[in-house]
């Protein structure tokens, strides 16, 4: 069973500190500006201490569950390369996967208790027929602030959604602090340009 027809689900995953909650806030704002009902869910508390962080956004005419049903997300966006695999089962078969090439090595790997998968790109290509895999962190550095990688990714994932292009700028202006609006608009445009 897939998502009910009137709802769009987006699943974001990454590691604590990558700005996932801001990306989720901008996306929610954009959906609201389009007149949609919106529900989101975020992970707080213990998991934020270096752990996997998840944000889920659902919008449409009427949204009931704030949680995305496995196998139904229109877009899966992973802020870290390999983490995309952890949430792959949330993506709909024809959904778009936007994945940052940036890798974050967890303590479990550094202390020799676990390994980081070797051929991440191959695994991703095998898993996701519609994959947008690029180094959003590098793009953000080129733009002038590595912390805007989240909005670069948001720009890319916006291509997988049907929200009007014009609402994104307003959503960014309404959500980020005034001094960061311009750089985030640049970041968004750079991300959006990576998806054909």
């Amino acid at each position: 069973m897939n998502d009910n027809n009137s709802c769009t689900s987006v699943f974001l995953i990454g590691v604590g500190g990558q700005g996932i909650l801001l990306a989720s806030a901008i996306l929610s704002q954009a959906a609201m500006l389009c007149g949609c009902d919106v529900k989101t869910n975020e992970v707080h508390g213990m998991a934020q201490r270096g752990g996997t962080v998840i944000a889920q956004v659902r919008y449409g005419k009427k949204v009931y569950s704030p949680l995305v049903t496995e196998g139904s997300a229109r877009v899966l966006c992973s802020f870290e390369a390999a983490e995309a695999l952890r949430a792959a089962h949330y993506l709909a078969p024809d959904g778009l996967a936007v994945v940052n090439q940036y890798q974050i090595i967890p303590v479990s790997v550094s202390s020799g208790m676990a390994t980081y998968p070797e051929h991440v790109e191959e695994l991703l290509k095998k898993q996701f027929p519609r994959l947008c895999y690029f180094d959003a962190t590098q793009k953000a550095i080129e733009i002038g602030n590595p912390r805007t990688a989240n909005v670069v990714l948001l720009g890319a994932l916006s291509k997988g959604l049907e929200l009007e292009e014009s609402v994104w700028e307003e959503a960014i202006r309404k959500t980020v602090k005034p001094q960061f609006i311009e750089i985030n608009l640049k970041a968004f445009a750079a991300g959006r340009a990576t998806v054909q």
Partner: peptide, 17 residues
């Protein structure tokens, strides 16, 4: 709708200090 098989290749990311 279980996590995919390749997800088992991932290192765990529990919260840490």
């Amino acid at each position: 709708h279980k996590p995919i098989k390749d997800a088992s290749l991932l290192p765990p990311r529990p919260p840490v200090l």
